[in-house]
């Protein structure tokens, strides 16, 4: 009876587990079953900024760090990792990106807002004329 109702696998561990062939999922996988999400930032080498590399699910910061190490620092360079709960990050929408553009009336804050060559050239021209008159 049991022989025919459980999975027979090439993997002996699966055969030993006596998994029913036609069982329905006996649990309800509800929201937060996989916990909350964390965002991961890693630093490739000392002196670099930390950069965002992706997100993961974890029940607490310590587990988030372990998962981040496995998922985002498995290959390649990494010297440091930050994990932050996604819900703790405040962001703006790309739709509002115009708030970051520099307005024309704030050019006094930019290097390009200061143009001196016209005045210098004008001054030099006039100065030379005066020299010539003398």
């Amino acid at each position: 009876m049991k022989e025919n109702s459980t999975i027979k696998s090439l993997d002996p561990r699966i055969t030993r587990a006596d998994i029913p062939k036609d069982g329905q999922l006996s649990i309800d996988i509800k929201p937060l079953d996989q916990w909350q999400t964390y965002e991961v930032f890693h630093q490739e080498k000392k002196g670099d900024h930390h950069s965002h590399v992706g997100s993961l699910h974890a029940p607490n910061p310590e587990m988030a760090f372990l998962m981040a190490k496995e998922q985002y620092a498995r290959r390649g360079r990494c010297v440091n990792i930050w994990v932050v709960k996604t819900s703790d990050i405040f962001t703006t929408n790309f739709e509002d990106e115009d708030m970051y553009t520099t307005n024309d009336d704030k050019m006094y804050r930019e290097a390009g807002g200061y143009k001196v060559m016209d005045r210098i050239n004008k001054y030099k021209k006039e100065h030379k004329k005066k020299e010539a008159v003398k």
């Binding site: 909350q36 999400t37 965002h52 997100s55 996604t86």
Partner: peptide
């Protein structure tokens, strides 16, 4: 206190 937020990027 867990709450689900869609990951950012």
């Amino acid at each position: 206190d867990e709450r689900y937020i869609t990951p950012l990027a």
